[in-house]
Design a protein around this nucleic acid. Sequence first.
DNA 1: TTCAATATGTTGGTTGCCAATACATAGCAC
DNA 2: GTGCTATGTATTGGCAACCAACATATTGAA
Lengths: 113, 113
Amino acid sequence: MRGDPVRGHLDGLLLAALEGGPLHGYAIITAVQQRSAGALELRTGTVYPALNRLERTGLLRSTWESVGERRRRCYELTDAGRRALADERTAWREFTSAIGSVLDPGRAPRPAT
Amino acid sequence: MRGDPVRGHLDGLLLAALEGGPLHGYAIITAVQQRSAGALELRTGTVYPALNRLERTGLLRSTWESVGERRRRCYELTDAGRRALADERTAWREFTSAIGSVLDPGRAPRPAT
DNA sequence: TTCAATATGTTGGTTGCCAATACATAGCAC
DNA sequence: GTGCTATGTATTGGCAACCAACATATTGAA
């Protein structure tokens, strides 16, 4: 997969990963990797700043967890985050429909005229 | 549609627009716009440098046309361009499958395990 | 005569992800 | 007891790719 593959879709991926319940950053990375069958390998330099930003903008909320001596920061969706996820899904469908209608018209039929 | 929507998929769009026959830059822009039902409005600052690059790398070939006093540069796919288009389609399907399996699992089933 | 459409191009800026780096705990193999 | 890997969070600097704005010219309609 060509460089910067998730560009523009990162927020949606992170929100979607958290839809099933709270996860910490590292677990989000592995969850995304597994759900995409290994295709998407998010980098820490990509994920942690993004999670931080999503919390700042109110789409996520975080709490610190302790497992023995180790600390993890656990993120969960807020109500606004759930709404944002729905919006990301809509945007994703519009996006794939738009690009697909030009690039791959057999698979993604043109929007009704 | 959020900013930079075509990022990473521009080459595929341009190649696909030319699959049906030669077109000049301005016509490519309107063709993409029409085929996407208005969703994709490519900018001249995006398209012309990209066409130039695709010609430099041998995926397109161009000839100057004259219509009255006006000059247009007509692009067409080379054989390499046709192969590149096929690759772009494959990459597009893999891309949508990967992102979709995380973001929109109901619509884009996970790749076979 | 002014405006919009047609037509091609360049320049500079921003965005957003990535690579590299840093650091700490935990568990396993040897 | 030492190293290696996995787990875990975070920052910094860089850069590619697209966009906005600008520049220029012809054509045709109001």
